[in-house]
């Protein structure tokens, strides 16, 4: 591999002593791609740092769907963090009111970035569609 390459490499390297115009088009192109990506990343980060929302996590838990399975009713929920900082280990609780004892189910979501959502599921024995279901986030840890 290296053997046949080295003469051609030397040939390519030799005209480097001439100024400017010996830079291959591909080099310009890949550098341009790199510049565009780096500028986008830096731009987005700057924008977020300067104009991003501040404040603690504000987590809304939304019901996505209810499915009856042989092993209970699965309530799929999405937790959306409207706040300005990420939350870790978010505890989601659903309380199903009913004639008798209210039924409670819990789930923990590892990470919810700010302005983003993450989903999980709660499992109930009774049909959540037949009763009033209250969903909320009970607590979280700071992301670091």
């Amino acid at each position: 591999m290296a053997k046949p390459r080295s003469p051609s490499r030397r040939a390519a390297a030799a005209p480097k002593s001439k100024p400017a115009n010996d830079i291959p088009a591909l080099e310009w192109a890949s550098a341009a791609v790199g510049l565009a990506l780096a500028a986008t990343a830096i731009g987005l980060t700057t924008w977020d740092a300067v104009f991003g929302v501040d404040g603690p996590p504000a987590i809304e838990v939304r019901l996505k769907s209810v499915s009856a399975t042989p092993h209970g009713y699965v309530v799929e929920v999405e937790a959306f963090n409207h706040g300005g900082s990420p939350a870790a280990q978010v505890q989601i609780e659903g309380v199903l009111a009913s004639e008798a004892e209210p039924e409670t189910a819990n789930a923990t979501i590892d990470y919810i970035p700010e302005q983003s959502g993450a989903s999980g599921g709660l499992i109930f024995e009774r049909d959540p569609r037949a009763h009033a279901l209250k969903l909320r986030a009970k607590g979280f840890a700071d992301a670091f």
């Binding site: 390297a13 400017a20 080099e27 890949s30 791609v33 790199g34 565009a36 780096a38």
Partner: peptide, 22 residues
């Protein structure tokens, strides 16, 4: 690339960064 000039170093660095991103 076997380079010595600032322009080439910058181009190489940008290309490497772009490669990293992709």
């Amino acid at each position: 690339e076997p380079t010595f000039r600032l322009k080439d170093e910058v181009l190489d660095a940008l290309a490497a960064f772009g490669l990293g991103f992709l």
